[in-house]
Design a protein around this nucleic acid. Structure first.
Length: 535
RNA sequence: GCCGCCGUAGCUCAGCCGGCAGAGCGCCGCCCUGGUAAGGCGGAGGUCCCGGGUUCAAAUCCCGGCGGCGGCUCCA
């Protein structure tokens, strides 16, 4: 009987070995290596086709005096569960993890196509919940719209004319559909349907919000980590306002941005952290790349200029104008951040749009329902831009330190054991008490035990990987007093603060860490999940 | 889409002038018991991205693909 030893490239590159020979000569102390195990499962019927058999060649582990040359054969390989796992792995191909974090947060399953795993899932679910509630409190209706629509919709909006090269198109039963590249067409439809049914009862300005996932075909070379992907979720909203309400509505948007950046993400909004970019049309391309009439562009660009000046007056944030940066349907006022190398990334945006209302004949409709005299204008806006990009930039800025409410592992209780049984049992009791208390309150908490010797090594490990915003230490000192040492991470100071508190006071520390979110949405936002796999 | 670099252990990477698959960290076990980012010893752990080709022999050389990073271009 002959056995096939598969080389790294499988059956095409072979070492052929007489099995009895190999097995006989293998010292008992050296069990088969991995690639041999696979080989030993494979039964081979082969014919030697090359005249080289018998030539002096290199030996496999020095066991054979004569290696065999080329063979052609068929191998019947019995698959084990690992083989199937490997096949599936290749089919799905999890590749690069989210930069700075592990694969438990997320990874790419195709070019520009991120998957959010259990860690990223918690982060995004909490973030979306906060955004939904915050917008609802600020007078936005929260909706959800489908991924697919007939392309006829995008003919009306102009996307098919101005944006087609970025759209994924799909044919279903002979009809052409598009995967939505933007949420706005659906939001216009919803507004129109409400107007038709409820007429003047629909209050202006009308504000509609969605955490909408869109897909855009970006050329492969444009993709860049989480900062530029093909599938992403926008915190997208549209405001339909009369001319006299436009400026106030826009200023309100920037007020909300500041609110969310500072209270949820601890990012101080100053000229040092963010800048405003007034993105204008290129005059010679109006009609080709930019949709609509020159007068309307001039009108709306002036409006945005006034808003930019007002924001500068209120918040002291500088702005700069750039021609040719506008969206195809209107000019924008973008929030941009700069990387260390000077590369700029757009996050939040407020975009002025006179085109879509015209295309959907909204002026005429509102003339009937609301006795509108001028025009209705549409504002497209996003506070974070896309969740992916915002999180990607944030992870860079804060070196993977997420805000308390978003971190998959929020609190880690560390027991420092002494080796003395009576002391250790007290320590363990305190650790378990602290953890149970946190878990009961739906804080994502876990624990780990270490010793004085190992403490610094274990701290280094969690501080360089999962980075739990709240660390709680229990050692001999704490056990003697029945207290715990808390070390919450302060984003403002970029370091951990420390104090010693009773078990009952732990939730006060948690409460302090949730303050920003409570200020935003009125209540803490908690999502239980078992994070113990992370420690 | 174009140009350049890259893909090897859970992670970061070495090996790449073809010839037995490597290190550090992590993980597991033992020893230790120096309180806030590296204590000591031992062990386990691989489809060298995928597919073809050349060769007695490929992680290594050639062709094609996929994926990642950086630049151009483009955008949230």
């Amino acid at each position: 009987m002959l056995y096939l030893l598969c080389g790294p490239n499988g059956p095409s590159a072979l070492y052929l070995v007489a099995a009895s020979h190999a097995l006989q000569h293998r010292p008992a102390a050296h069990p088969p290596r991995n690639h041999e195990r696979a080989a030993l499962r494979a039964e081979l019927h082969c014919t030697v086709t090359d005249g080289a058999v018998g030539r002096e060649v290199y030996c496999f582990e020095g066991l054979l005096k004569t290696a065999l040359a080329r063979v052609v054969g068929e191998a019947a390989v019995e698959k084990d569960h690992m083989d199937y796992a490997v096949e599936l792995d290749i089919a799905v191909k999890p590749t690069t993890p989210v930069p700075g974090l592990g694969k438990e947060y997320g990874y790419y399953v195709g070019a520009g196509n991120p998957l959010f795993s259990v860690g990223g899932g918690v982060l995004r679910t909490v973030l979306k919940h906060i955004l939904h509630k915050y917008h609802a409190k600020r007078g936005y209706y929260v909706v959800e719209t489908p991924l697919l629509a007939r392309t006829t919709l995008y003919e009306v909006t102009g996307h098919l004319q101005f944006y087609k090269e970025n759209m994924f198109l799909v044919n279903i039963e002979g009809d052409e559909y598009a995967i939505k590249p933007m949420n706005c067409p659906f939001h216009v439809l919803i507004f129109m349907n409400l107007l038709q049914k409820y007429q003047a009862k629909v209050a202006l300005p009308f504000k509609i919000f969605e955490t909408g996932t869109v897909h855009r075909y970006e050329i492969a070379g444009a993709l860049r980590g989480l900062l530029r992907v093909r599938a992403f979720t926008q915190d997208d909203a549209h405001i339909f306002a009369r001319e006299e309400d436009v400026e106030q509505s826009l200023i309100e948007v920037f007020d909300m941005m500041k609110d969310v950046y500072e209270k949820l993400f601890h990012i101080p909004v100053t000229s040092e952290t963010v800048r405003l970019r007034l993105s204008l049309s290129a005059k010679d391309k109006i009609g080709s790349e930019f949709m609509g009439e020159p007068e309307m562009w001039r009108f709306s660009e002036e409006k945005l200029f006034k808003v930019a000046e007002e924001i500068k007056r209120r918040y002291g944030i500088e702005f700069f104008a750039e021609e040719g940066e506008a969206a195809f349907y209107g000019p924008k006022l973008d929030v941009v951040v700069f990387e260390e190398d000077g590369k700029e990334w757009q996050i939040g945006t407020a975009q002025f749009d006179f085109n879509l209302p015209m295309r959907f004949k909204l002026n005429e409709l509102l003339r009937e329902t609301h006795g509108l005299e001028g025009n209705i204008y549409m504002i497209h806006r996003a506070l974070l831009g896309s969740l992916e990009r915002f999180i990607g930039i944030y992870l860079e800025m804060y070196k993977g330190r997420l805000p308390f409410v978003l971190a998959p592992l929020q609190a880690l209780v560390v027991g420092i054991l002494t080796g003395k049984e009576d002391v250790d049992s007290k320590i363990k009791k305190l650790v378990e008490e602290a953890k149970d208390k946190l878990l009961r309150e739906e804080i994502r908490a876990s624990s780990l035990y270490t010793t004085k010797t190992h403490l610094s090594k274990d701290v280094r490990k969690v501080e360089s990987t999962v980075k739990p915003p709240l660390m709680i230490y229990v050692g001999q000192r704490e056990a003697e007093k029945g207290l715990v040492t808390v070390r919450p991470y302060s984003h403002a100071e970029r370091r951990r603060l420390q104090r010693t508190v009773s078990i009952n006071e732990i939730m006060e520390v948690v409460s302090e860490m949730e303050e920003g979110v409570k200020a935003l949405v009125g209540a803490p936002v908690r999502l239980p999940a078992d994070p113990s796999y992370m420690t």
